[in-house]
Amino acid sequence: MAPTDRHSPPYVPTASPATLALAHALSAAARGFAVFPLSHTKLPALPSPHRNDPPSAPRCHGECGLAGHGVYDATTDPRRIRALFTAAPRATGYGIACGLPPHHLIGVDLDTKTGTNSSASLRELALRHLFTIPDTVVVATPSGGRHLWLSGPPHVVVPNSAGRLAPAIDIRGAGGYLVGPGSRTEHGVYATVPGTAHLPPAPCPPTLLRLLTPPPRTHHPDPGRPGQHGLGLVQFVLGAHEGQRNTRLFWAACRAYESGLGATLTESLVDAAIRTGLTDREARSTIASAARLTACR
């Protein structure tokens, strides 16, 4: 046996990028953030099961029950998260879905790619509208930008936007996601800014929240049968895994009320939710929250 150098450090196996990403994702899920695997390009790591469908096929947000729907795969269930990462062995990061309970996360993306000083733009906006950004989680991006994590109220849906609030400031809201800290991309690693990792997402200042919320839309209820759209919403709820059930039900109920089908679909949605494991009381409470939200909007 060859002699060993007694001054050499002991061999320590290096974890793979996928293993590290999974560990970070599970840690985020334990704090209530719904997660899913990302590739090194910051895109969902799992291919869509509908990538070969014809263009005329209806859009699926996970109603089929298969993985590969991007942010709609997001979950806080550790078993489901491990299954997603097992199916995506080349994942190097994870996404955190915005707009979901309990945090109703809103991401303020201060970009640097355009050459605009986005931090200065945010400070100017805050001075003009008389609000301050509270101490909150801040994630540094490989390009030198910053992601500010804020928490929104459950009855307000903040949409995604790019540059609408101010130049070089993008907003990640309902249906969007943030790259989680610890994720490795082709440009580098996302990392929490020192001193902010232990903080919960701070409540979004009310004035800023109003700037992020679009004006109410006028809805035209259709008193007819629910049709294919209503059936799709029910199937979406039926496809929920543990950790997604309330989220999917809330999303489907919001879409139902926005389409004027809330009253028509309520019992079908309740029945679907019960079949996924929710109680009748939990299901009706979630649907009632969706009804209040759409009424406010």
Score class of each variant (00 low, 15 high):
Pro200Ala: 15
Arg128Phe: 13
Pro206Phe: 03
Gly180Met: 13
Ala191Arg: 10
Lys113Phe: 03
Gly173Thr: 04
Cys204Asn: 02
Gly230Cys: 10
Gly227Trp: 07
His198Tyr: 09
Thr141Arg: 09
Gly224Trp: 11
Gly224Tyr: 10
Pro194Val: 06
Leu150Gly: 03
Leu148Pro: 03
Pro205Met: 12
Gly224Thr: 13
Thr192Trp: 13
Trp149Cys: 00
Ala166Asn: 07
Arg164Ser: 03
Ala202Leu: 15
Gly224Ala: 14
Gly230Met: 01
Leu199Tyr: 15
Leu178Gln: 00
Pro205Ile: 11
Gly144Val: 15
Ser161Lys: 04
Trp149Thr: 01
Gly176Gln: 07
Gly175Trp: 08
Thr114Trp: 04
Gly230Leu: 10
Pro221Phe: 10
Ala126Ser: 15
His103Asp: 01
Ser119Met: 08
His129Ile: 05
Ile169Ala: 02
Val139Arg: 03
Leu125Gln: 02
Ala162Tyr: 05
Gly145Ala: 13
Thr114Pro: 01
Asn117Arg: 11
Leu209Cys: 08
Pro181Ile: 09
Gly230Glu: 09
Pro221Lys: 11
Leu150His: 00
His187Arg: 06
Gly152Gln: 05
His187Val: 07
Cys98Arg: 05
Pro167Trp: 03
Gly182Met: 15
Ser121Met: 15
Val138His: 02
Asp222Thr: 15
Leu122Tyr: 07
Thr114Cys: 07
Leu208Gly: 01
Gly152Met: 08
His103Arg: 00
Gly176Leu: 02
Ile171Cys: 01
Gly175Pro: 05
Asp135Glu: 00
His219Arg: 14
Val158Gly: 01
His155Val: 11
Gly107Phe: 04
Pro134Ile: 07
Val108Ile: 15
Tyr177His: 09
Leu100Asn: 00
Thr196Leu: 07
His220Ser: 05
Leu212Ala: 01
Pro215Arg: 11
Thr141Asn: 09
Gly99Val: 02
Leu150Met: 10
Gly144Thr: 14
Arg210Asp: 05
Asp135Ile: 00
Asp135Ala: 00
Val156Asp: 04
Arg217Phe: 11
Arg128Val: 14
Glu186Pro: 06
Arg164Val: 03
Thr196Asp: 09
Leu110Gly: 01
Gly188Glu: 12
Thr132Phe: 04
Val158Tyr: 03
Glu124Trp: 06
Ala166Val: 07
Ala202Trp: 13
Ala162Arg: 08
Asp170Glu: 11
His155Met: 12
Val157Met: 14
Ile169Phe: 00
Gly107Ile: 04
Val189Met: 08
Gly145Lys: 02
Arg225Leu: 14
Gly230His: 09
Gly99Thr: 03
Leu130Cys: 09
Asn117Glu: 10
Val189Pro: 10
Pro181Leu: 06
Gly152Phe: 04
Leu199Lys: 14
Ser143Trp: 12
Ile106His: 04
Ser143Gln: 14
Glu124His: 11
Gly115Gln: 13
Gly224Pro: 12
Arg123Trp: 04
Arg217Ala: 13
Pro216Asn: 10
Pro154Leu: 09
Ser118Glu: 02
Arg164Lys: 13
Val138Asp: 01
Gln228Val: 11
Asp111Gln: 02
Lys113His: 12
Arg164Pro: 00
Asp222Trp: 15
Arg217Asp: 11
Val179Ser: 08
Leu100Thr: 02
Leu100Lys: 00
Val193Cys: 12
His103Trp: 05
Tyr190Gly: 06
Leu122Cys: 03
Asn160Cys: 12
Leu211Ala: 07
Asn160Asp: 13
